[in-house]
Write a protein that binds this DNA or RNA. Structure first.
Lengths: 214, 214
DNA sequence: GCATCGATTCTTACGCTGTAAGAATCGTGA
DNA sequence: TCACGATTCTTACAGCGTAAGAATCGATGC
């Protein structure tokens, strides 16, 4: 354990940098993230970060991976739950994490999740479904559908441009939205995103459950 | 019609700029789009664009709006089709447009679609569903679900980082992907994205159709 | 034809970005 | 104590978005 000759002077770590970067984009938006500003938030010059992370692209990938791992932890260790619950939990955990880190949505949407850790997680979930008799191709499809729907839905729910924190339709007043949309908004339709997500997710899962039985 | 005293010297137009910008991101990726480079592609200095578009943010919004209008045109004028067909056509048209302009995916995912034109279109589709007896809140939900799923699904399908044109799992060889994912890929599962999109979309639509009947 | 005017384009400049290269600094093992 | 290596900072460069103003061009009024 003495392979490191000297210790960091400020306790800086790749993980600390990634977490600080996630906190930073949550507070200031992804477009405000720069090496110099992130360094300043960590009490360090911008170039110092390059000793821990080779480039900004890798930094962003690391942030995404951190979120994916967090979502996986959250999905809970209900190892023997029926696969429909597994899929539902996974999607809900992803949604919860994205809600807790709204600044990361634009990042995760713009960047493929190809990190080894993410693949391992995906594979593990795939295995859970397969062990319960779900054919592999259906397992791939229902997982992919649940995740992609969740990301798309959360994208529509949480404002996407950093300056526009409101959801897609909340910012539109009923007056300028057109007759039908205006009426729907006046009734309050389309604003309970959690309920809508839950309902559509159930349709997807039920649909694949019916396929898996046949 | 003589309110304009002088004519543009290179035939430049807001629309031409937006189309050139879309073509540019399709070819070089969204991160390569800069005012100077886009100007060069149009045979003009970068600052010239600011005479037609007030900022890069507005430029990006305009590009997204152009795509939305294009998708609406594509959905076809089957005015009296059953609402399930309307939803399906709308989602498929969106998917087709996104496929034709892969560089725009990151842009459209990062930017809310709040333009007046987009709202008018959404309202019109909402009205089509409502006139066939679909309650407004269900119409909102099924449209939102179909669109968000389509965007999320296409995000997962088409590589997201500009340097990574491959789909999410195509780049992962079966060997390093884990046992189950590896087996699934070896069988070729999860690669026919069009079929998968179509199938899950049908589940969503059918699910809401069942709700609308009750 | 010529002058004029306004629309269009270009030039310059500023602070910001990511990051390459190398110098400076500090904690630790010998 | 000394030297080494890990860590941090300094400097520099090209490119970014864009503010401000100068230059240029085409159509119009005389």
């Amino acid at each position: 354990m003495a392979d490191r000759r000297s210790r960091p002077r400020t306790g800086l770590t790749r993980e600390k940098i990634l977490d600080a970067a996630i906190a930073f984009v949550d507070e200031h938006g992804p477009e405000a993230l720069s090496t110099r500003r992130l360094g300043a938030a960590l009490g360090v010059e911008g170039m110092t970060l390059y000793h821990y992370v080779p480039s900004k692209a890798v930094l962003l990938d690391g942030m995404v991976e951190r979120l994916v791992l967090q979502a996986a932890d959250e999905a809970g260790p209900a190892q023997d739950a029926p696969w429909t619950e597994v899929v539902r939990d996974t999607a809900n955990a992803l949604r919860a994490v994205l809600h807790r880190h709204p600044g990361m949505l634009a990042v995760i949407a713009t960047r493929p999740v190809n990190s080894p850790a993410a693949l391992v997680l995906f594979d593990r979930t795939l295995g859970r479904l397969h062990s319960q008799g779900v054919p592999l191709d259906l397992a791939m499809d229902v997982l992919n559908a649940a995740m992609t729907f969740t990301i798309g839905h959360t994208l529509a729910e949480i404002g996407r441009t950093p300056g526009t924190p409101a959801a897609a339709f909340e910012s539109a007043s009923p007056s300028d939205a057109g007759p039908h949309l205006g009426e729907a908004l006046a009734v309050g339709a389309g604003l309970d995103f959690e309920r809508r997500h839950h309902r559509t997710l159930a349709m997807i899962i039920d649909g694949y459950a019916a396929l898996a039985v046949c």
